[in-house]
């Protein structure tokens, strides 16, 4: 261990903070009915929910990248009132209760919503479809990507971009070969955060997309439902979700170290 560089008294609240997270998780792990664990988590309803969660979270994360990278770039490289307003707007889902997001999504994409009839004409049935789950997840998760990437882009600054331009690289080349690679740690952690948020999405999904096995009932919805029916299954599935989250966080950590090792 290296010499501790923080005031010693910080250790007490730090330890309490860590315990606040660790104890409930540990308590849950201890209360799992291990003898029936595999049958509880491999029921059709459970595997459907897990598979649906993984699929929708992946698609939603891709959408977050598709929209979030350009948004972060625009926000990081512009200043002024318009940019501030746009940033507040984009980050709004971060501070909104997800259920409010769900209600807003119904007003926009619902069957009687602002765009509902337009989508109908286009042959897109959003209501009660997996598409609705993906929209809900993208809505709540995108700010995580944007905020993380924007921070990385701002930290990287324009110094390398300027040099790249004087070397003859056009804006697109600069963005692709300099801007994004330099912001890669922020992009990776933002992506993983967004994925984790998608995976954990509950409120907006249940409000906007509904809950049907294999179509809209993701793992968090299944867990919430099982609380009523079979609390043991709820605990077991919660642990599965924790495991997935831990793997995701683990990925962030290792990626971050390997990336920052390359910078002086």
């Amino acid at each position: 261990m290296t010499q501790l560089s923080v005031p010693k008294w910080l250790l007490l609240p730090a330890a309490l903070g860590a315990l606040l997270v660790a104890v409930p998780i540990l308590a849950m792990a201890l209360s799992v009915d291990w003898s029936n664990f595999s049958s509880l988590v491999t029921s059709e309803a459970s595997t459907d929910a897990l598979w649906l969660s993984l699929r929708t979270a992946s698609v939603s994360t891709l959408l977050c990248l598709l929209f979030g990278i350009p948004l972060a770039a625009v926000l990081a490289r512009t200043a002024g009132t318009a940019a501030t307003l746009l940033r507040s707007l984009v980050l709004l889902p971060l501070v909104l209760p997800p259920v409010v997001g769900g209600i807003a999504l119904i007003q926009a994409f619902g069957r009687r919503g602002l765009l509902g009839s337009t989508l109908d004409v286009l042959g897109l049935q959003v209501a009660f479809s997996t598409t609705a789950v993906v929209i809900a997840q993208t809505f709540v998760a995108m700010p995580f990507l944007v905020i993380s990437l924007e921070g990385a882009l701002r930290a990287a600054g324009t110094r390398y971009e300027d040099i790249a331009a004087t070397l003859g690289a056009g804006p697109t080349t600069v963005f692709r070969r300099v801007t994004l690679p330099l912001a890669l740690p922020g992009l990776v952690s933002g992506t993983i955060l967004a994925f984790a948020r998608c995976l954990g999405e509950f409120g907006a999904t249940i409000t906007f997309a509904g809950s049907l096995q294999g179509t809209t009932r993701t793992l968090p919805l299944e867990i919430y439902l099982q609380r009523e029916g079979d609390p043991r299954a709820a605990v077991a599935l919660s642990l599965v979700l924790v495991a997935v989250a831990v793997i995701v966080i683990g990925l962030t950590r290792t990626r971050r170290y390997s990336l920052t090792a390359g910078t002086p």
Binding site: A127, F128, I206, T207, A209, G210, S211, L212, Q213, T216, R217, L221, Y224, L225, E228
Partner: peptide, 13 residues
């Protein structure tokens, strides 16, 4: 059903 909700409130909503 298109959806099996958590509670009557959700169905009504």
């Amino acid at each position: 059903p298109a959806s099996e909700e958590q509670s009557v409130t959700d169905v009504l909503g």
